[in-house]
Write a protein that binds this DNA or RNA. Structure first.
Length: 282
DNA sequence: ACCCTATGACTAG
DNA sequence: TAGTCCTAGGGTT
């Protein structure tokens, strides 16, 4: 489930699996025609910026992946010498690492690590220069240590759009999605409908610092945990989860963990916004 | 079997 | 703002 932390986690994982050797790349579904361009190439490393994932290959080529709303990777291991299983369902791209080839006959050896990409909104071979282009269109990424939050603040303070909408705009901030948007606004005690022009700089700084910390936890754990220890009583499970993880996301109708007010929900620019009318009044 | 929803984002108008 | 991309899971017939 892809917000920025998911892509950074995948970049870390794919680098661990594939960096430093050639990989086999194919298109089981038949739609990733350019797989032949990178098949057999040396895999340099994987990186992520915002919700974009890049597989960097030697020769100045990269595979640009965006998971969209419901894209995901299946990841599994294959024993030495064994054939990887036939893809089940629609697999856009399969990448397989190459095992040692004892026969030294010039043939590519057996795969060991395999990842299957399903349902992405984007999977294409691009030049490294175009990677820079994609990154250049994104706002600062809280998961990038070199990111400059002032770039985001300069846009926010001049915009009449609501802070709830601005946080979701990848040109303003890269990597924030619907869960982090809702949770970070709750933790800051901010009304999501506050116009950017009415935002106080200290509140934006608090949001940025909180995103840096929360998203780093997301990369490490693979899940979005936002509840402070003082508010984690193990009760009121979020829908679809076995344990409480969030304050407001998908908790509409439930009592706020802090003030008891029922959590509200409303569509905002085609996405469902969740907030606590008690804690986040303007 | 059918309907809805989902941690996203582009395009047309 | 609606339609599209097109995967999976959950709830309801």
């Amino acid at each position: 489930m892809p917000e920025g932390h998911t892509l950074h986690r995948l970049a870390r994982l794919h680098t661990e699996y594939f960096a430093g050797g050639p990989v086999r790349v194919c298109s089981p579904q038949g739609r990733f025609v350019d797989s032949i361009v990178v098949d057999g190439r040396y895999f340099d490393r994987a990186t992520a910026t915002g919700k974009h994932l890049f597989h960097h290959y030697e020769g100045g080529l990269a595979v640009h992946i965006h998971l969209g709303l419901y894209g995901f990777f299946d990841t599994y291991r294959v024993n030495d010498g064994a054939e990887p299983p036939a893809p089940v369902g629609q697999v856009r791209m399969r990448v397989a690492s190459v095992g040692d080839d004892d026969e030294d006959d010039g043939e590519v050896g057996s795969p060991r690590r395999v990842i299957d990409l399903r349902g992405p909104t984007r999977c294409e071979v691009i030049a490294e220069t175009d990677v820079d282009g994609v990154r250049g269109r994104l706002g600062p990424d809280p998961l990038d240590p070199a990111a400059d939050p002032d770039r985001a603040w300069d846009r926010i303070r001049r915009s009449s759009r609501t802070i709830g909408a601005l946080l979701m705009d990848q040109k303003v901030l890269a990597g924030v999605g619907n869960v982090y948007r809702a949770e970070v606004l709750f933790r800051a005690g901010l009304d999501p409908f506050t116009p950017g022009t009415r935002m106080r700089e200290e509140d934006f700084r608090a949001i940025w610092d909180d995103l840096v910390a929360l998203m780093a936890v997301g990369v490490d754990t693979g899940a979005i945990h936002t509840i402070r220890p003082a508010h984690d009583h193990g009760d009121l499970p979020r829908r679809g989860a076995d344990r409480p993880r969030n304050y407001v996301y998908q908790r509409d109708g439930w009592d706020c963990r802090v003030c008891g007010t029922p959590i509200a929900q409303q569509k905002l620019e085609a996405r469902t916004l969740f907030w606590c009318p008690g804690c986040q009044a303007s």
